[in-house]
Write a protein that binds this DNA or RNA. Structure first.
Lengths: 248, 248
DNA sequence: TTGTCATAATGTATGACAAAAGCAATACGG
DNA sequence: CCGTATTGCTTTTGTCATACATTATGACAA
């Protein structure tokens, strides 16, 4: 009845995966270091070795660790982690300052989303366009803030799927996990009318099959989103990023 | 002594992971369908249930499947796969027509790499620049074709790492797996001098901290790479992509 | 320095039981 | 008589325990 937030109820090995993965991402173990032997983890968490091993396999599959007989299980450098993996993302967001990660995510969006919209304009199928339109309509009809954000997310995801290029899809996945909060904050009240117009501009360009128009409309959309984020969250979202970050 | 290419010698569960993962990506199982019960897979591949379960955990972690007691283990829709995962990528390349995937990868690069270079110009640290320069120098000094390609890959990877934005890193990882062959083909003989100049232009812009110049230089670099790919592999690499792919 | 060996860690196999979920048969009510 | 709810069976995944294989490390000795 009481299941801790939503962590209990799930299988034991995913709980162990969460705890170990989280502590790695959090940096508690440090790159190149080895985590405790399996048996020791078993004792620490009071689970069987089966469970621990399956958790380790999951983390290995995400690129976080690699293990060898005798030498143990070591943390791999973060360049080799599947940083776009939903779980890895979640562990990041749990640990670090949210704003830093939202800013970085926004850098990625700024790079990819205009091109994605352009590809969508030339490659989208009927059902892709239907999904994008559903996003627009949902934003239009939304009564609650939450419904508005959900429709907004659907809209942006649908654009990535409409590229018909699977390498763009993992980026769409991030929205589910990462953007809900930032969108929720940025979607309050007065911005909506303009946002709606700009979203529909992207839709229209895609429907018209005009790649360059879609790209341009998306650039506008993102620029205004950045404005909102700067206003609400702080100057970390300014573009381009501060030069003084550089060390020479 | 003889180990089949490089497949033998590896652990049993990664072999099982490969076989199952490959057959899923290949589409032999079909979205929403269930794979055979664990025990049956054990018999088919003559391994213990431990091994099969660990393989399943790995694939679950990559988003390919999800399993429930009694109802079995089902294939999830490809939108939810970690398409940028090195293994998933490899399974794709094993199965499908290489050219289609190289073309799609190139679409992603075209979207991301100019922005990545721009970010690198403002965010790169000393060691990042050293790596990029090492790539240039390596291309310069390369005697063999293979060495040239390796340096080329290092150059492009280093740019993604230099963004200091971990969300760009998984894209760099793809190069290792995907680009070796395409680069090898495109790097023959006469293209090298021009390629070298263009690479160094990107490096110089990044060193100068000039984001816009870095973006522009990368666009040029990619455009010429596309030319080479079109010439050698076929018109699939043309930009923008064919309109008639659209169904309305 | 080199070779060998003990050892500690992961890798694999097996068997047993728990828990969940689909399915069918059954019982109940309309 | 038909439809619905309930109950119980059974299949499949989830977890545990134990034993043994394999491998690489590090110490020791030649």
């Amino acid at each position: 009845m009481f299941q801790t937030s939503n962590a209990l109820r799930r299988s034991v090995h995913s709980q162990v995966t969460d705890r170990v993965g989280s502590s790695i991402v959090r940096g508690e173990i440090g790159v190149g270091e080895t985590l405790p032997p399996e048996m020791q983890i078993c004792e620490m968490m009071a689970v069987s070795r089966t469970v621990v091993r399956e958790a380790i396999r999951t983390l290995t599959g995400k690129g976080l660790i690699e293990s060898r007989p005798k030498s143990g299980t070591r943390v791999r450098p973060p360049e080799q982690w599947n940083q776009l993996d939903p779980d890895v993302l979640r562990w990041h967001l749990e640990s670090a300052e949210i704003d830093r990660y939202l800013a970085k995510l926004f850098q990625l969006r700024s790079a990819v989303e205009p091109a994605a919209a352009a590809l969508a304009a030339t490659h989208a199928h009927e059902d892709d366009i239907a999904r994008i339109r559903a996003g627009c309509d949902g934003m239009d009809a939304a009564q609650t803030n939450e419904a508005f954000v959900a429709a907004d997310i659907m809209f942006h995801q649908a654009i990535y799927f409409a590229t018909r290029n699977e390498f763009f899809w993992p980026i769409a996945q991030m929205f589910e996990i990462t953007l809900r909060q930032s969108f929720t904050i940025a979607a309050t009240g007065s911005h909506r009318p303009r946002a709606l117009i700009e979203h529909r501009a992207v839709l229209d360009a895609i429907v018209a099959g005009d790649a360059e128009a879609a790209r341009a409309a998306t650039v506008v959309l993102l620029a205004h989103s950045a404005d909102d984020l700067v206003r609400i969250r702080g100057r970390e979202f300014e573009t381009p990023s501060p030069r003084d970050a550089r060390k020479r």
